[in-house]
Design a protein around this nucleic acid. Structure first.
Lengths: 184, 184
DNA sequence: ACAGGCATGTAAATAGTTACATGATTCG
DNA sequence: CGAATCATGTAACTATTTACATGCCTGT
């Protein structure tokens, strides 16, 4: 079996916590890893097949009434593969932030409009923060033997707060320097 | 002309600051936007052609000796296009962080090994921080009419510091709770 | 003479999103 | 009954990276 993509490990990681359908995995991703590792149906379903072919998971048909449904379980090989990956040094960490990109080139705009970019960025981070807050509420109502998802979630909360604050600080700084220029 | 990709605006943004070759743009990207918006030769050269075809930039042959070289300048249409884009609300902001992904699933590992993930993450952020510091040194030696690249750079410095600190805090927290468990 | 940087480009592969098609079940 | 949700899947597209090919110029 050739090397797996990180997205394959997302699946392995969730399936390890208990048997799941592709649909369930997608829903879980959308409430957790998607903030630092997204995955779409177009990746999940083919990847489930590949993992099953490689013997890292096994699927079984468990229809709900007449609605077909395949749920997958992790195998011993799958667990081993997951752990081996977890032990390797993480490689990719990238960001694609159109807001920062616009801010970087904001000199092409009058200052009043440049400030708008920062406000938009702040609003977006705050929105994510609220989203995460809601997810945390939900989570705290369930069981919590595994502390890691919550740790990461709280990291996201802190990060979005830091980012939103940074936007405000820069906004203030920009408005200040605009005033200075006018009075000089 | 159909809609441009954000990568096209990276080019437009840099070319606006003065005539540049594809090679120069790539070098600039690698020392600035690549931390929040990367671009490879495979994107830059085809995109330069597309932008030239669309009349947003114009290229002219300016060989250095026998070495061929095309440098591009922005047109009035190009400047207009760039400003129009800057005024639109930024859309994409995504992160792909394999370290956070591993941390999220770290329950599959014994605690001592989970801590290793955090140490690796911290080291990587520190490495980026040093890289940014070096870039800042270089930048401060030049002229600085445009304040925005420096603002973004300093944001990156602050972000990587926050992140590295967070890793250390979580590491300490994990080690602490491991001790508690042992003594109970 | 050779290494390293300047310079342009493309082919192939990989990754990933979007949109669509299909159909069952549940709840109001 | 209709909407929402459960459920699976694929085709087409877009984006992006990697690796390669080519070749000149400059400094040691």
């Amino acid at each position: 079996m050739e090397e797996l993509s990180p997205t394959a490990y997302v699946i392995l990681g969730f399936v390890r916590k208990g048997p799941k359908s592709g649909y369930e995995i997608k829903a879980l991703v959308d409430n957790s890893t998607r903030f630092f590792w997204a995955a779409s149906y177009g990746q999940i379903y083919p990847e489930l097949k590949r993992l099953a072919d490689g013997g890292l998971i096994v699927g079984s048909e468990q229809p709900t009434g007449g609605r077909r449904r395949t749920i997958y379980e992790i195998t011993a090989d799958g667990e081993e593969e997951l752990r081996a990956w977890l032990r390797e040094r993480p490689q990719t960490f990238e960001m694609r932030d159109e807001g920062l990109l616009k801010l970087f080139f904001a000199d092409a705009l009058p200052r009043e409009e440049a400030v708008e970019i920062l406000r938009a960025m702040r609003d977006q981070r705050r929105a994510v923060n609220e989203r995460l807050r809601a997810i945390k509420e939900m989570k705290l109502k369930g069981e919590l033997e595994d502390p890691f998802p919550l740790i990461v979630l709280e990291g996201g909360l802190e990060f979005t707060e830091w980012f939103a604050d940074w936007c405000e600080r820069i906004e203030a700084q920009l408005l200040e320097s605009a005033l200075e220029e006018r009075s000089s």
